[in-house]
Amino acid sequence: MTTQNRPLSPHLQVYRLPLLALLSIGHRLTGLALTFGTFLLVWWLVAAATGPEAYATAQAAISSVIGRLLLFGWTLALFYHLCNGIRHLFWDIGYGYELKAAYASGWAVLAAAVALTLLAWVWGYAALAGGAT
């Protein structure tokens, strides 16, 4: 009997990661993505402090298609990390460990993250349309 080629468990090619595992690694990945996003925040503030040309350059980069896509991704990452972070904080004070509760809060986090992201972008485009102040 060969024991060499047996699949190890969990075998990642045939194993569907459960929701709770995906949410967990998602918190870490969004945390790292947000950390890279701070470069943009700093660039934006430094540009505004430097002068009109620097600000125009930063503004042009941010409103390009790639800039908007990145910004959209970061918005989603931030709201996901924020909502899931609140879930983490409830765990830290001892609530929500029941499997049923953990699934319910997980789905709630996903729904809230998507809803908040869409709200922020609708708000943003409304501000853009409503006379650029």
Binding site: T75, L78, L82, G85, H88, A120, W121, A127, A132
Partner: peptide, 30 residues
Amino acid sequence: RLTALSLVPLTLWFCASVAGLAGADYASFR
């Protein structure tokens, strides 16, 4: 945990403000 807790209101305020500032020119952003 404490920075996480303080970031909840701060980032919500920040996102709402930045969304409202979309397309803001140099003078209004400053």
